[in-house]
Write a protein that binds this DNA or RNA. Sequence first.
RNA 1: UGGGCUGUAGCCAAGUCGGUAAGGCACCAGACUUUGACUCUGGCAUUCGUUGGUUCGAGUCCAGCCAGCCCAGCCA
Length: 553
Amino acid sequence: MPKMHETNSNFIHDIIDRDLESGYVQEIHTRFPPEPNGYLHIGSAKAIWINYMAAKKYGGKFNLRYDDTNPVKEDDEYVRAIEEDLRWLGADPGGGIFYGSDYFDKCYEYAEKLIMDGKAYVCDLSQEQMSEYRGTLTEPGKPSPYRDRSIEKSLDLFRRMKAGEFAEGAKTLRARIDMSSPNMNMRDPVIYRILFAHHHRQGDKWCIYPMYDFAHPIQDALEGITHSLCSIEFENHRPLYDWVTDNIGFEKKPHQYEFARLNMTYTVMSKRYLRKLVETNTVDGWDDPRMPTLCGLRRKGYTPSAIFDFIARNGVSKALSMADVRLLEYCICEELNDTAIRRVAIVEPLKVTVTNYPAGQTEYFTFSNHPKKPELGSRELPFTGELYIEKSDFMAEPVDGFLRLRPNGEVRLMSAYILKCNEVVFDDKGQPCELLCTVDLETRNNKPADGRKVKGTIHWLSAAHTETAEVRYYNQLFNKENVATLLEDDNFDEFIGDDSLVIYGGCKLEPSLGSATTDERFQFVRMGYFIKDSKTDGVFNRISPLKSSFKPE
RNA sequence: UGGGCUGUAGCCAAGUCGGUAAGGCACCAGACUUUGACUCUGGCAUUCGUUGGUUCGAGUCCAGCCAGCCCAGCCA
């Protein structure tokens, strides 16, 4: 799949070009720094793609780094899932796999240095007090009474914090910057806090943990990251990022650049709501095919190349935007149209009896595995007097423009005869349950000799030659395009689409589908793209429908 | 009403030094078609949030205004 290795230029590449030309950097090094507190989603894939492609395009390196500075929110379970998703995407962390927590010793050392340089101090303010002292968006903050504590005192206190002498929340280490800065992040931000928590890698070694704003620039600098690419909500943190690298005095300073995160119609990207969907059993886990998670998309049958193609086509900018999920669907269809093997499946079978076909006779018709790629071969499908066709391919009272089968109408059976419907049998509910038809034996793979035009073509299967399966159609999980802006604490169920999952049982598949594996994607002819579910046997998931220009009315 | 960022078609998004609005998706029309798919052809912004200014000439420069997003966690 060459697509994921192609990228148009964007403003980040312009910055890199500039830095390379000026000689500011010689080699590009980026990283993807997920916090292991949830599963990766398609928005994460954008961050991965931007960082990975920047490194790849310039022959640089790309790291995976677990941002695990807060032990109370992180879990080892997510670490494995993240790496699996990253590797599935094909974004090889050739620069290495790291853990932010591996730098705790270094962070501690730099914190002491800052104290000794008079640039950080231990503060005894409680959380509430600190909030008061911080001021507001429009009013400057005021200095903490502990701000001018002596270096010796702060150093002593900080070491005792580390030794576990103080209760959680009793003290913090703060950077001494500017309490009147219009940027709230610069008003003496906390850089270390006391947390008596077990860390998934460090165990009980620490009871003080660095804050993101302090740890992240250090991690970047230590790994030799040149361009620290993150999403736009960190823009306000950039002055602090620079303050940290400046004041610790790194020789090679990484720089942070921000891009707009990915929003998409009919879904949510926040881990908080995704978790809620899982916990309330609204969906069947993080890998429910309706979820925007990478494991969900994978189970639904999406490919890494289609996902990256979607991200590339959307582009990279700083403008708040809402990507259209239809573009994602377009990307997977475009790829699968090219690569998926064609198969026949009847999702909602309607029985057809061919009254003029000799009872007990079977003949075979050749079906191409891919109409545009003869090199992919073909296979033979049996034809008998008892067939199934798709319910939706027959209308007892056809609407205008309906090209398929109707009473006394004709239709082409794909790769076989022209079929005529002579009689309709209805069930108790008035629904057609069987069609009595005849076949024009002269039209075996030929056009009618009399020149009459038969426009519709439908797919069919011999009733005696099928596998049975369940087929699941997934539609948008939410019924509102901009659902993310409508969600409040507990109202998301009113936005769940009624038809987000539609299950069809008793579907009839052509025999070869009985041996399908869970990583083969098929086009069920005229129906869409499908893949065998990886969790439940005998189930096929619809990856995407085919486009249709048939619009009744 | 403090600061930062953003504003080009229904959606996304290019637009170097100011020179007369790329491309993709969607949509519409037509051709082709034994998948109403695919493919192909054509159409789709006299106008760039807005108002002024500078200029022979402004999406690009300047000033003001408007709108949206982010920031007052010992979260990331």
